[in-house]
């Protein structure tokens, strides 16, 4: 499989890219910093990627570069089978309430710009006859909860969009995979209180890869979070007003 990957240098993205490399997928990495991308490319190459791992700079805060970055991937890979987006920004509810600049960045990157990037990817994948568009949303987008209102709002919008892509374009060969991680122990969640069912990146990555291969439109990783979120969605409003998770 030929994969264009935005966000392979950290956390779940790195773990997923490694699984792909180890089974011999061909990868092209997009990310913010060239030196970080090159270090990651070396890691993936040694772990088994079937060819040189190409890289190009692409920053979710700068939508002007999205087209060129995907063109660079096309120039190296030719036709590709999948686009994976794990990149994004995070802030705690407290930080996002206090810091208007951070709030603007998180909302813009996780909603507007991620969708903008997906639109570029969608057009290219459809032109190539289809493929997989795998995008990391979050369980935070399933239901408003006190610690993740703002981050969750952006992810809710993103999930809505991905859901729409699936119903609209699946018949034309575009398989959208919306990944909704629960609590995964990454640098992003460092500093947060760990809830039950927390997982490590390799486990979340393995579940994601299964969803990609199976073309599942929505994947909770680990899968127990499907049940957890179902329960959360059933909670009446008066309970949600009282609890703090």
């Amino acid at each position: 499989m030929k994969v264009v990957f935005l966000g392979a240098t950290q956390g779940m993205g790195r773990a997923l890219a490694r699984l792909m490399a180890e089974r011999g997928d061909e990868l092209f990495l997009l990310g913010r910093r060239l030196d970080t991308l090159e270090g990651q490319a070396a890691d993936l190459r040694i772990r088994g990627a079937s060819t040189e791992v190409g890289v190009a700079v692409c920053d979710l805060e700068h939508p002007d570069g999205f087209g060129a970055a995907l063109d660079a991937a096309t120039a190296t890979l030719g036709r590709f089978d999948a686009v994976v987006v794990t990149a994004g920004l995070f802030g705690t509810q407290e930080a996002l309430e206090q810091d208007a600049d951070l709030r603007h960045r998180v909302l813009t990157v996780d909603f507007t710009n991620t969708i903008e990037f997906c639109e570029h990817a969608r057009v290219r994948l459809l032109a190539m006859g289809g493929g997989v568009l795998c995008v990391f949303s979050s369980v935070a987008g399933d239901r408003a909860r006190k610690p993740v209102i703002l981050y969750g709002a952006a992810k809710a919008g993103l999930s809505y969009y991905l859901d729409g892509l699936d119903v609209t374009y699946r018949s034309r060969g575009l398989r959208t995979v919306a990944v909704k991680p629960g609590f995964v122990r990454t640098a992003m969640t460092e500093g947060l209180k760990e809830p039950p069912f927390a997982a490590d990146p390799p486990a979340a990555a393995a579940a994601t890869l299964k969803a990609i291969d199976g073309g599942r439109p929505v994947a909770y990783v680990p899968s127990i979070w499907r049940v957890v979120m179902l329960a959360v969605k059933c909670l009446p409003r008066w309970v949600r007003r009282r609890v703090d998770f």
Binding site: F90, G91, T92, A95, M188, E190, G191, L192
Partner: peptide, 8 residues
């Protein structure tokens, strides 16, 4: 973004 975690 909180950078450090109090930990045992």
């Amino acid at each position: 973004m909180s950078d450090v975690t109090v930990a045992e």
